[in-house]
C-alpha cells in the first residue's frame, strides 16, 4: 500500500486555497502524500535540489509571486529530468486562450478552482483516480479541463 501512495505537490501562494486543498486530501480516503510550496521559486528549488523526491503529480497555480505558474511549466517541460512529471493547472480563472496555450506548453489537465468544498474534493478525487493506477495518462485537448 505504501508504494502506491501518490505523492502530490501543490504550488500555490494562497494560504486559504492551500488549506482547502489539504483538507480535501485529508478527507479523501486512501490519502496521498502532499507537499505544499508557496511560490514558483520554492517549487523549482524543490524539484532541482531533491531529485529523489520527485512528486507523481504537480498541481500548479498560475498567479504566483516571484515566479509564475507559466514560467514554472516552461522550465519543467524544458528540463530532461522533470519533463515527465504530469502538471495539472489549478487556477481561479478560466481563460480560453490561456487554457489553449497551457495545453500547448504540455500541461496534462486544467482545473478551475471550485467554490464549494465538496466540489474541491470531487475534482481532486477525479485526478487522483485518473493517475492512481500509475499508468501513463495520454493527454488530449478534449479532456483537458476537469470539472467537479
Amino acid at each position: 500500500m505504501e508504494k502506491t501512495k501518490l505523492h502530490l505537490l501543490l504550488a500555490d501562494d494562497d494560504i486559504d486555497d492551500c488549506d482547502f486543498f489539504k483538507d480535501a486530501i485529508d478527507e479523501i480516503s486512501g490519502a496521498c502524500e502532499l507537499t505544499i510550496l508557496n511560490n514558483g521559486v520554492e517549487l523549482m528549488g524543490f524539484l532541482v535540489n531533491d531529485p529523489h523526491t520527485h512528486p507523481n503529480l504537480i498541481f500548479l497555480d498560475l498567479n504566483m509571486p516571484k515566479k509564475s505558474g507559466m514560467e514554472c511549466i516552461a522550465e519543467i517541460k524544458a528540463s530532461d529530468n522533470l519533463s515527465h512529471i504530469p502538471i495539472i493547472i489549478y487556477s481561479t480563472s478560466l481563460d480560453h486562450t490561456v487554457v489553449n496555450s497551457l495545453y500547448d506548453m504540455g500541461a496534462h489537465h486544467y482545473i478551475q478552482k471550485p467554490a464549494e468544498f465538496e466540489s474541491i474534493k470531487s475534482v481532486i478525487n477525479k485526478v487522483v483516480t485518473l493517475f492512481g493506477d500509475t499508468s501513463i495518462q495520454q493527454r488530449s485537448r478534449d479532456n483537458f479541463i476537469i470539472r467537479p
Binding site: D16, F20, D23, T92, S93, P114, A115, E116, F117, E118
Partner: peptide, 16 residues
C-alpha cells in the same frame, strides 16, 4: 478576475 478569488473563498468557507 481578482474579484473572483475572494468571492470563491467566501463560498468555500460558507460550504465548510
Amino acid at each position: 478576475h481578482d474579484l473572483q478569488e475572494p468571492l470563491r473563498k467566501i463560498q468555500t468557507f460558507i460550504s465548510r
